[in-house]
Design a protein around this nucleic acid. Sequence first.
DNA 1: CGTGACCCTGACCGATTGGTCAAACTGTTC
DNA 2: GAACAGTTTGACCAATCGGTCAGGGTCACG
Lengths: 217, 217
Amino acid sequence: MAEEQNAQDFTEDGDEGKRPLTRIQKVNRGKILEAALEVFSANGFRGATLDQIAAEAGLSKPNVLYYFPSKEAIHEALLGGLLDVWLAPLRAMNPEGEPREEIMRYMRRKLEMSREMPRESRLFANEVLQGAPRIGSGLSSDLKTLVDEKAAVIDHWIAQGRLAPVDPHHLIFSIWALTQHYADFDVQVRAVLGPGKDPIEGAAPFLDLLFTRLLTP
Amino acid sequence: MAEEQNAQDFTEDGDEGKRPLTRIQKVNRGKILEAALEVFSANGFRGATLDQIAAEAGLSKPNVLYYFPSKEAIHEALLGGLLDVWLAPLRAMNPEGEPREEIMRYMRRKLEMSREMPRESRLFANEVLQGAPRIGSGLSSDLKTLVDEKAAVIDHWIAQGRLAPVDPHHLIFSIWALTQHYADFDVQVRAVLGPGKDPIEGAAPFLDLLFTRLLTP
DNA sequence: CGTGACCCTGACCGATTGGTCAAACTGTTC
DNA sequence: GAACAGTTTGACCAATCGGTCAGGGTCACG
């Protein structure tokens, strides 16, 4: 029950030895990362055990540690490999595009990701909640750079009068908060709404309305 | 560094033995709960250890277990005692009041709580993130009841034309998401904004604007 | 089909963790 | 101040955890 594609080729090594990476290696590293995503996102770093990950991946514990030197290394590989995917929609925001359309597209894409990749969302949420001890300053400074860059774009749009004046940083935070809420607090949302349709289906028109009203001058 | 008031008297027992609760008992249970809030909110349930809690409380581990039968029991006492505090602002929403004012007041109070009680927010976030295994159906059904009740009030306001038409459940979710984001993802918010003023100071006017625009017909 | 590199595992280890217990200590009450 | 309930602790335990290791199995390639 863990048979997805893990589109990651792992050329990531600092120095020399770039062995071509066996077929078995590719398969098993993929299985481990998929299992680790499942287990880490559901239990957090400390709550997850190597035995769980090994069982979920269908491998023995020593075999898992044959492919990754430690539990921490698995976690890092996961986070590092996923961060780009996670930030891609924001990167894709086009300064040349129509302002409201660009921001709405970003919001909708993030909401889509909450539906399609809730485990990834929870993985990051877990990490940040505990003070981001394992993702730390390096990635956080990349994040800051990207956000500052896009905030400047939004400010420019506002200066042109093409967007209602709002604090761009908090606008971005609000997109994160509102979309990721449906992935991170899924159980609570479902508990309140009761059984039935996908909560995100109801969220989509609400968020459309919310951001339309916020951004229209 | 853990000297706050813990306003909880703990009459909570199902059946008979209601001993008057010694002075020492009141003090030490308070110390333990305060320490547990600190440790659980920072590390999650599984990430927290009894030794950490004992050290933070300034007690020995066996002494902690003299006052609470298990780590789980401490966690439950914390969550149970805090849930009322957490939901009080929503309970306080007055059906007789002016609609936008009531909702704005609720939002502002929640934001205030993110500033003043971030540990409590993270405690709940941790619990819900992991699927709420220890808070479960009982509390979730209380929560649903309360939210459904208030959603009905909001719907009534909308029917009267005193509020712009919005999905009341998702409106409440949006208040939760936007306000708690600043407590739960504090490190990320600060990393992006850079060092300086309290992020919530910047959030307050933004959220005022956002909800004003959303709710004005 | 042989051989060397790669892959896999059972058994094991030391550290940590939640929890126990007997014994000692302290506060309170008559 | 005797006596008893209430409080505290060092020593200890069983289970779990991340990680190691020696040895055996398997794959690809000549």
